[in-house]
Design a protein around this nucleic acid. Structure first.
Lengths: 257, 257
DNA sequence: CGCGGGGTTGAATGCCGTCAATTGAAGTGG
DNA sequence: CCACTTCAATTGACGGCATTCAACCCCGCG
């Protein structure tokens, strides 16, 4: 349980920004179409962009987040720590995900967020959230929708950690990440290189590093995944689904705020 | 892992209803004050009441929930099942909690809800939710707040199941339930009788029934809890907090929709 | 070339699960 | 009122899955 927690905290917002009207994410089939006036407000809501290095901490537990972010590109994860350093990864973060809502709405972050790869975030101003709720009920509804979706994913993860065996858990997790990543446009040629170490997987599954390694090895031997240069690739999605007894991701279109 | 899942599903909404203006819950110190027009809308939003018997299933995974509910009185729990019957309890439900939001917002419930005691629910119409978002941004914000709070609780539970030992988990869980129950007005004389079986605790902690029993026995021997006539009482809250390394519930006032 | 991070493996320990059986309380029907 | 059943709690024995300890390898980097 020896973790190195990176201490660099992301700070500088760059000025260079993608216009919301030409958002590279929005054309993806997973995102629902927006009305012109919604798009216009989101554009107005957006304050700038934040580029975060791999390994940097984006949000820190205990801080009150000054901003709300939408992931434009890259990977990250949410996690919590116990006082003795044990770490639990709560969920992974991918393009289109909204982060920092807890801090914005409830005043203080109860978890931290770290970048798994270079990460580009759209920065929204906390103060304008009430204006969004007042003037664009549709967008407000979307934000609740996203919060509800996060809850749904957490429910799944909780079920998995609580009730599945080690190998089932690993199979579920990798299938889950793979599916989400594909839907978020992180797939190059239908293959997805998941940029995690086995320590990340271990801290997500609630297992030790050693046992995680042995479990992953079994998945490799069964030809379901491959492990290469600091990452993981799912080879046999159906196999993972069968092994874990998971139905697969069944999301329709989602909003992109 | 032998579970009996009750099959009775709650059906009939009674006409008898508490007026929202004279809501027995709202005066509690945990709930934030509402503006008169908010109260008026909630009253208009409310459609009736639903009384649910102990053991009955309120919401079923896979169904699209026709309604949204706020718990007026009683205890319940949210859970998910694996196809082979393994059950994971996700969270407990107490007065003031909003349930069925997932089904309302995302179209289909991804978890089930069962009553631990007799339960009285305020029934809200799904169709009027958009109207709420349009006409009362403050209430819309409150609903997002509540969804965010649920996410926060799930994060804590995930941390606990993933990274705490059996006895730490049990200590955390009972302290958590105790704290929430006290804040929700479920305490008679500062003592709280938690109406669960050890099977419920086991399915929450992700442990077997036998090992849960042995773990709870240790907590009893340490004088931290008592187990009596189908329920549990926390005797030494500080002891549980110390054992689990949990900071305790730190919620300010919350909205009551 | 030494060092550190990440991955891999074997051995020993132990926490937790499974099996099995008992107790006591509460309900049911005769 | 008493067999009979059922459910919840309890306890002991045993086995196994997962943790811990301890190496070792590979590779990129200063």
């Amino acid at each position: 349980m020896d973790k190195k927690i990176s201490t660099a905290v992301a700070e500088n917002a760059t000025e260079r920004r993608h216009s919301c009207e030409a958002c590279p994410l929005r054309p993806l089939p997973v995102f629902r179409a927006f009305e012109p006036e919604e798009l216009e407000f989101v554009s107005h809501f957006k304050r700038g962009e934040l580029a975060v290095d791999r390994g940097a901490t984006v949000l820190v537990e205990g801080n009150s987040s000054p901003h709300l972010y939408t992931v434009l590109s890259g990977w990250g994860f949410r996690f919590k720590l116990l006082s003795d350093g044990r770490r639990q990864i709560l969920n992974y973060i991918m393009p289109g995900d909204l982060i920092g809502l807890q801090g914005t709405i409830m005043g203080e972050m109860q978890h931290s967020v770290e970048a798994l790869s270079g990460l580009v975030l759209c920065v929204f101003e906390r103060g304008k959230l009430m204006e969004l709720y007042s003037r664009h009920p549709g967008l407000a509804y979307d934000i609740t929708w996203l919060a509800s979706r996060e809850e749904r994913m957490l429910d799944e993860n909780l079920l998995s950690i609580g009730r599945r065996s080690a190998i089932e858990r690993a199979a579920y997790l990798l299938a889950f990440i793979h599916e989400r990543a594909r839907a978020s446009g992180l797939a190059a040629r239908s293959r997805v290189a998941i940029p995690v170490t086995q320590q990340h997987i271990a801290d997500t599954l609630g297992l030790s590093l050693v046992h995680t390694n042995k479990t992953l090895r079994k998945l490799v031997q069964r030809g379901m995944i491959e492990w290469r240069d600091g990452g993981c690739e799912v080879v046999d999605l159906d196999g993972l689904l069968r092994l874990s007894g998971w139905e697969g991701l069944d999301e329709g279109k989602r909003p992109l705020v």
